[in-house]
Design a protein around this nucleic acid. Sequence first.
RNA 1: GGUCCUGUAGCUCAAUUGGAUAGAGCAACUGCCUUCUAAGCAGUAGGUUUCAGGUUCGAGUCCUGACAGGAUCACCA
Length: 596
Amino acid sequence: MSLEQGILSSIQQAFAELFNHEVVVENLQLQPTRKEFEGSYTFVVFPYLKVTKLNPEASAKAIGDYLVNASEAVSAYNVVKGFLNLVVNQASWLDIFQGLMSKPQIGQLPANGKKVMVEYSSPNTNKPLHLGHLRNNFLGYSVAEIMKATGYEVIKANLVNDRGIHICKSMVAYKHLGNGETPSSSGLKGDHLAGKYYVLFDKTYKTQISELVAQGISEEDAKKSAPWMLEAQEMLRLWESGDEEIVGLWKLMNGWVYEGFDATYQKMGVNFDKFYYESDTYLLGKDIVEEGLSKGVFFKKENGSVWVDLTDEGLDEKLVLRADGTSVYITQDMGTADLKYHDFQIDKSVYVVGNEQDYHFDVLFKIMRKLGRSYGEGLYHLSYGMVDLPTGKMKSREGTVVDADDLIQEMIDTAESHTKELGKIDGFTEGQAAELYEILGLGALKYFLLKVDPKKRMLFNPQESIEFQGNTGPFIQYSHARIASILRKAAQIGVSYTPEAFADLTGIQDAERDLIIILHDFEKKLTQAAEDYSPAILAQYLFDLAKEYNRFYAELPIFNEQEKFIQSFRIALSFQTAQTIKRGMELLGIKVPDRM
RNA sequence: GGUCCUGUAGCUCAAUUGGAUAGAGCAACUGCCUUCUAAGCAGUAGGUUUCAGGUUCGAGUCCUGACAGGAUCACCA
């Protein structure tokens, strides 16, 4: 039984014995005591005044007196208004700490027998990844790892949008202007090469529109009849009919893009267990339309189009199949949802997709539930806010997009110059130094994007946003490196820090106790991060932990401590902190260095 | 216009899901390296939580209504 559970069940007994009232432990809540008061846990008595029939102070006092007698862990208490602050004795904290140290693996809860698929990244193959994709990828990867750590079996999936009119646009431009250019002939990364032609298409297309408008054609008509647009549409038709030449070009260009994406994914440190391609899935879902019609979930209009009526759920009527029998976006998403279940028998399915698609997923999930899918209740849209620049929204056509590869490199370069400025690379080989810059640069970037509540829109200022001090990735990495240095020294002079080495310990300092408390919180925070699909909770926790450790580090000596068992204890605390930081950062997808 | 999301220190974000005197970081200022990494620690200053009502022992948090920003409302994806 955990410390909190023990105290709570004592409180339950207190209610039974003092007030002859039964309360359920699950309904009782302890909260951490605020710093300005004495104690570790606080029980708020206000909600129970009707039961106690006493004023707040007297109620708190009665429960406090009971707990001091009945609970092993509670050694003292104080009452401020209706707040009962409980002081936990030192022996309990030491027990907690030894319990933490004896765990075989840190931050890994037992398997819960459930399977979840986390779909993230899901790029278009007509242009390279940008800042917005970075948030998506880091979020998706981290949420997947966090769920794995809380006991789920996780399948990371990437649904690649590799077909459609936008892909054909790049192909049209390449066909006309490419001159056989390849990634190796141009030195351009494959995804950037495809992106170049996507931009070229847009440029030429605009020129064609204005030429037509100059000839007196309305802008609306010009947009439809510009030669390259017609060509792109024709190309899409040919692609769908399996035209050899077009499919060949499509395969060639997509192949380049995948090489580029692979490199970026590798640099980002994300990975996938399963790739789905829209070129394989875009025809799925029509059978579900039939199913929905026969189940009466969908209905057909006079022109033959098929709709779902969600007005009783506060939404609108929504088209699920065109009058000509062709699919729309949601048709294939219905099909893909079933496909995912068919492939993996998942209990939950998480879609990491921006909040601009809130309505779409609302509709999709309601449909799948109406259809009675077993996984219906497990569908979740992890809807994250856009990343804005100081200049506003990123717009590819206005050239205000922050390219992912460029940004990552910029971060690594900044880490390098910053590290050199501080003169911290003595004794590093060139390779080690390069590795460190990458760890720090990516750590800063990932932490910056993950520390904010996913559903909130966030601002990214390329000049100012990324710091290396304060609430940042490198601050936490630095804390780990500091401890690693201590552990190296401990090994060097042969100090043991197993629990036996500090068995004689009787009293602990406040800074030590506070560190134990926060170390003890790790699994709770991990669980909460999984339940809320929010790496930000974990990020915030790791910052608090690192801060707490640094306070401990500044306040108390380690190797200058004369009492050997105290020294061992402090090294053990340091070790446990390093393990927790390392594991927590790993779940955010961030590496930690041993020196920096 | 309908629907949804957001609004907290100059800036970027927290706030244990309704609890105490709303906390961190950055920027500014003051201390601390002859001791384990100063990418650190301690401190000062900075707030009518957009506004107006309401619910109750208690509201940044819940409800109503304004205001501001964003997203979405295609037989596009």
